[in-house]
C-alpha cells in the first residue's frame, strides 16, 4: 500500500486537508485544479496544518518539508496516468462531478479507483457517465479531515467489493476509521444529524425551550453532543444544510422535510457564522 500514488481533484479546503492526511501517511500526491490560485490555496491549507504540528513540536521542520515535497500539482491531468487512487473534492454539483469522472476515466490507468468526497450526492449518479462504474466509490471525509476519524465508504449500485475493500484499506492507512454504507440519501451521519436538527427545531417552535437553552442542554453529559445543534448548523452553513435537507426531503418525504425556518434563513442570506447571522447573531463577518 505504501507506494500508492494518490490523485486529488479540487484543491479547496477539503483537497488541502486530504493532501495532508495522504502525505502524512507517506503517499505521494498529485493535486489538480482549474486555476493556479486554487492550487496555491490548497497547498497553503496543507502547509498550515503541518506548520501547526511543527509549532506544537510534533514534527521537525525537515520532516515537514519532506512531506510537502510529496505533493505535485497540475492544471490538467498530467501525472494522473500513474495514479492508483483518485479522490475528487470539487464543488457539490452533480453535472460538474459527472464531467470530472468522465475525464478521470480517460486520464487514469484501468486499475485506478475513483473516489468522490461528496457529502450528499448519489455515487451511482456520479458514476453514470463512465464505463468503469465498478471502480467508482464514495469516500466521505468529515471536516476538519485532519481531526475527524470517520470516513463513510459508500457503495454505488455497481461498485465492486474489491473497490470498497481497497477504499477502506486506504482510509485505514491514512489513520481513519472507515464505515461502509449504501448509496442512500444523507448516508449515515448527515441523515441522523438532520433528524436531530429537525426535532430541535420542533421543540423550539412548540415553545419548550429557546434555542440557546436547547443548545446548552445538548452539550451536558446526559445528552453528550460536542456542540449544540443550532450552533452546529451555523458553523456548517445554512446553505449547505438546506441542500442536504432538500435531498433528504426528496428521498424520504414529510418526515425529513426542510423546515420553514431553514428556508427563511436561507432566503434571507442568513447563512450562519460566515454571513454574520444564522440562528444566532455573530456581528460582521
Amino acid at each position: 500500500m505504501g507506494d500508492l500514488r494518490i490523485g486529488i481533484v479540487g484543491a479547496g479546503t477539503m483537497g488541502g486537508e486530504i493532501a495532508f492526511i495522504a502525505t502524512q501517511a507517506g503517499f505521494p500526491v498529485i493535486m489538480k485544479d482549474i486555476e493556479q490560485r486554487f492550487l496555491d490555496a490548497g497547498i497553503n491549507k496543507t502547509k498550515q496544518i503541518y506548520e501547526f504540528k511543527v509549532k506544537r513540536r510534533r514534527m521537525s521542520p525537515e520532516e515537514m518539508d519532506e512531506k510537502i515535497r510529496l505533493i505535485s500539482t497540475t492544471l490538467n491531468y498530467d501525472g494522473f496516468a500513474d495514479a492508483d487512487f483518485v479522490i475528487e473534492a470539487v464543488p457539490e454539483n452533480l453535472e460538474l462531478k459527472q464531467k470530472v469522472f468522465a475525464e478521470l476515466e480517460k486520464a487514469c490507468p484501468d486499475r485506478a479507483i475513483l473516489a468522490t468526497n461528496t457529502s450528499a450526492l448519489s455515487i451511482t449518479k456520479i458514476a453514470e457517465k463512465t464505463t468503469c462504474r465498478d471502480r467508482v466509490v464514495g469516500m466521505h471525509f468529515f471536516n476538519p479531515v485532519s481531526m475527524m476519524r470517520l470516513v463513510e465508504v459508500i457503495r454505488g449500485a455497481e461498485t465492486s467489493d474489491s473497490t470498497v475493500d481497497a477504499t477502506c484499506a486506504l482510509a485505514e492507512a491514512m489513520g481513519k476509521s472507515p464505515v461502509k454504507c449504501a448509496d442512500s440519501a444523507g448516508f449515515i451521519v448527515n441523515r441522523l444529524l438532520c433528524a436531530a436538527m429537525l426535532e430541535a427545531i420542533r421543540c423550539e417552535s412548540e415553545g419548550l425551550l429557546p434555542r440557546a437553552e436547547i443548545d446548552n442542554a445538548l452539550v451536558k453529559p446526559d445528552a453528550g453532543l460536542p456542540i449544540g445543534l443550532f450552533k452546529m448548523a451555523d458553523q456548517l452553513g445554512i446553505d449547505l444544510l438546506y441542500k442536504v435537507m432538500k435531498i433528504l426531503e426528496d428521498a424520504f418525504g414529510e418526515r425529513l422535510a426542510v423546515p420553514e425556518i431553514i428556508k427563511n434563513l436561507h432566503d434571507q442570506g442568513a447563512l450562519g457564522v460566515k454571513s454574520g447571522k444564522g440562528f444566532y447573531e455573530y456581528g460582521k463577518p
Binding site: 468529515f142 475527524m148 476519524r149 470517520l150 463513510e152 476509521s177 464505515v179 461502509k180 454504507c181 449504501a182 442512500s184 448516508f187 449515515i188 451521519v189 441522523l192 444529524l193 453528550g224 453532543l225 460536542p226
Partner: peptide, 17 residues
C-alpha cells in the same frame, strides 16, 4: 444502509456523539 454497529461508530467518529 449500514449495520447498527457501523451507525454508532459513524456517529461517534463523525459527529462526536
Amino acid at each position: 444502509v449500514a449495520t447498527a454497529e457501523d451507525v454508532d461508530a459513524a456517529m461517534t467518529n463523525g459527529a462526536l456523539f
